[in-house]
Nucleic acid binder design. Structure first.
Lengths: 355, 355
DNA sequence: TGATTTTATGCAAGCGGTTGCGTTATTTTC
DNA sequence: GAAAATAACGCAACCGCTTGCATAAAATCA
């Protein structure tokens, strides 16, 4: 079933059919209605390849995932983000090609492939192992693209980024713990990436600002896995009584730590308050439920898509980006649950309001 | 950069370039090499739309996910499967359009859309809310497609299905528990879907076959969530001493149950052995680590892709499926961990060998 | 050496849409 | 009432690639 078939049925020319289906104002109201009726009666759908060949728009965007996407901790968080993104894109009738950054067998860069073959109108790069090469490539080609979830390393990067402010995330955890009277916190990090570091920095900075001694915050280094956190706690079990709070930079490590703590008879939150990060589904499943930092992933997904659509429109109209690149930092919020909740002091005494 | 450009540079005709790049035997070795060199020097990639318009092959397949994909328990398992599938497809240089079955805003059926617009060469349907309508549609159009992870409801369905045998999964759990001397098992189901029921049936059948009384297996009904399992255990806490084993039909419920058990001072596995299902990353993260049924998702992904490629080839050659539809059931295997491990009896006394 | 096959390349017609421009019929304007 | 503007539609070129068929050159054969 092609335009030609519809044209024959309707007894008009092929171009009239095309215009009718695209709601062109050049066509009279009756013919348009008549043709649209015929088309939908026959279940006509335009051939996507033919259309994009003619219009050089594909109606598809590329969602590029980092190589380590299948690591468990990332899986939980990213899969949710991923779904939110697709949901956002379907509002604009865009299909989504999901790809890893590199094809593992042909070693081809999927970004370059999708772009030069003109399979996509734009790209969403999720937590990319950002390399200057890809960015330069995309900029040279004036391809619409946005980045998600990566605190940029320069103040005003040439691209659009949407990320959840890790530093603030760490800070609001610290404020909450100070609020409930925890003055000897232990912190478990995940790695040396900026994201993990910033969470710890925000945490540490807030403790510094509270006037407590410099060395108040103890930091141990894990690798995002539950096992690593469990091992760390296990090794430091004899000193664990020195701490009254535990902040893990992701929920999974909080979980691993809690396992060992409880196995050792340490009560949560009475003996030690525990806070995680990412507010994954794990947080509510745990007993006691886990206080965690919720990242506004739905909002990030929504805004990133909106922006991408803008960029696509600009490109079809002017051939390139017109508006300036923006770096958008979204604020995470703390979800207080049992793992720190019941220790909470009645009311703030020092005016630092953590919401 | 198009074929025409390359042709001008090489001083040949456009069709010679096309044939050279497609390794047609009609072209002499030298010209082919020369043209390929020029093309790759200029980073030429063929326009995907133009090529598929000419060949009616898109180099893209559609991966259709069920609506409830973002439910937590499914997320864990499916996201892993999903990654495995994409990895398998990239071996064949196929891109993947990922879509939910229905567009939530336009209410359009994405299967029909992707197929009639000719955006994909074939489809992989993951745990579809299988409806006769879609199947009939795909069959009429002779579209290559395979189903994953759905025990078919008829013995010889007209499509290709790959699934993990739930019944056997339940059975091997029971055999293991019998092996380690558990004679009073409690079972927590997830829902009324065939998948959940079959896991329980396999479990129950194996216990029946062991010669124990009919009512040996107690079954409680949850909803796949950790909270539901926790609630069930909580309600039945006073009777829990009657049981020496707990089988949950997914890891998440095993997790929820374990939380309550431990909070109540019940030891795992000494007082009660616990077994989950799906062998998600949760299983190794738990303390004690969770015995669970591992589904061969990598193998399923691999076989499903292989088969889909066959179907696509058949269709391009003959216009329709030639080979008969096969139902492929893959065998899950039990991964024994701490939550049931240390209770294990030294050697089998009755010859039922659980591997 | 002329006729026939083989080999290498070019021509041109699609694939199924979109869209600028031309044509015809109908209104509007003075 | 004739000229100009407007409205509705058709023609045909084009998007970039593939491929059947024609052609020319080289190789093989009688």
């Amino acid at each position: 079933m092609t335009l030609k078939d519809i044209a024959e049925i309707a007894g008009t020319s092929l171009s009239t059919v095309s215009r009718s289906l695209n709601n062109s104002p050049l066509i009279s109201e009756e013919t348009r209605a008549r043709i649209q009726a015929i088309a939908s009666a026959h279940g006509f759908q335009p051939n996507a390849s033919a259309r994009s060949l003619a219009t050089s728009r594909t109606g598809t965007i590329g969602l590029i995932l980092p190589e380590n996407y299948d690591r468990f901790d990332g899986l939980l968080y990213n899969a949710a983000l991923h779904n939110d993104l697709r949901r956002s894109l379907e509002r604009a009738e865009l299909d989504t090609i999901v790809a890893f950054k590199q094809n593992r067998v042909s070693r081809q860069d999927n970004i370059e492939k999708l772009v030069t073959r003109k399979k996509v109108d734009g790209l969403i790069l999720v937590q990319p192992d950002i390399d200057r090469k890809s960015v330069r490539f995309l900029e040279e080609r004036t391809i619409p693209y946005v980045l998600i979830q990566y605190p940029p390393d320069e103040p005003n990067p040439p691209y659009d980024v949407f990320y959840s402010d890790s530093w603030t995330g760490g800070r609001i955890v610290a404020q909450h713990l100070l609020d409930i009277g925890c003055h000897r916190p232990l912190c478990i990090t995940g790695g040396q990436e900026r994201q993990s570091r910033q969470r710890v920095d925000g945490f540490r900075d807030a403790y510094k600002a509270s006037g407590l001694p410099e060395d108040t915050v103890t930091v141990l280094h894990g690798d995002y896995s539950a096992a690593s956190a469990a091992a760390l706690i296990h090794e430091n079990l004899e000193n664990i009584g020195n701490y009254d709070a535990l902040f893990a930079v992701n929920d999974l490590m909080a979980f691993g730590a809690m396992e060992v703590l409880r196995a050792s008879g340490i009560r949560i939150p009475e003996d030690i308050a525990v806070v995680g990060f990412d507010d994954t589904a794990l947080a509510t499943a745990l007993i006691p439920s886990l206080t965690s930092v919720h990242q506004p992933e739905e909002e990030i997904a929504f805004l990133a898509c909106e922006r991408l659509l803008e960029l696509i429109d600009e490109r079809t109209e002017f051939g390139r980006r017109i508006s300036e690149a923006r770096t958008t930092s979204l604020q995470p919020r703390l979800v207080i649950r049992e793992s720190s909740g019941s220790r909470r002091k009645p009311a703030a005494s020092d005016g630092t309001g953590a919401s």
